[in-house]
């Protein structure tokens, strides 16, 4: 038995009560088994309690695709940029007005095949997420935080943003423009999947 030698009584310097902590000579393997059992049980308890708890803390809700109606095509005059506001369905029920979301919509007319073309841009600056404002007079989006500027088509014009504005995914269904409910867009997690 290899284990026999590994078990030594803990050192005691308390001379008044010398407890006999050494295992009885006949039962070292029982002690060893008991220690292993305790260790295994503790580990099992930690794992079965820990996995769901860690999953709760670090898990992500699977992403749902929700479509939001923005209006009929006639609501959007040709080549005019408008902010359309809606209640984001990705909200939690108790989000209140915080769930209000604005996107910039521009009707870009029809392509050669007669399909409608729209530009739907998130209002969050691609730099650090501040809300950009649209200035129709100069045809520019400007960000109040660090002065990022974008052209009407969402392309980066000047300032610190590393890219243009984030494009929302849209579709026209029965003459109605719909947009995929946007999550909070960041550089590696854009709205249309392009990085």
């Amino acid at each position: 038995m290899v284990h026999d030698t590994s078990i030594t009584p803990p050192p005691t310097d308390d001379s008044t009560s010398p407890p006999d902590l050494a295992p009885p000579p006949s039962t070292p393997s029982r002690r060893t088994l008991f220690r292993w059992l305790t260790g295994i049980c503790a580990a099992a308890a930690a794992v079965i309690a820990g996995i769901p708890v860690v999953g709760y803390f670090l898990g992500r809700r699977p992403r749902k695709v929700e479509w939001v109606k923005l209006g009929t095509i006639d609501d959007f005059p040709l080549n005019e940029t408008r902010m359309i506001m809606f209640d984001n369905p990705l909200r939690q029920p108790w989000d209140g007005i915080t769930a209000h979301t604005g996107v910039y919509v521009r009707n870009e007319g029809q392509n050669g095949k007669g399909e409608d073309r729209f530009l739907v841009l998130a209002a969050n600056c691609a730099h650090l997420g501040c809300p950009v404002s649209w200035f129709p007079q100069s045809g520019l989006f400007m960000c109040p935080c660090h002065g990022g500027v974008y052209y009407a088509n969402g392309e980066h014009a000047s300032g610190p943003p590393p890219r243009g504005l984030f494009h929302c995914v849209w579709q026209v269904k029965a003459g109605t423009l719909e947009v995929q409910a946007p999550h909070y867009p960041t550089l590696q997690d854009t709205l249309d999947g392009t990085v």
């Binding site: 992500r60 909200r91 939690q92 209140g96 915080t98 946007p182 960041t186 590696q188 997690d189």
Partner: peptide, 17 residues
Amino acid sequence: GPWIVELLLGGEVIGGG
């Protein structure tokens, strides 16, 4: 990054979470 963003914001959008 995207995973940390959701962890920080407590959801896909800024709100109650």
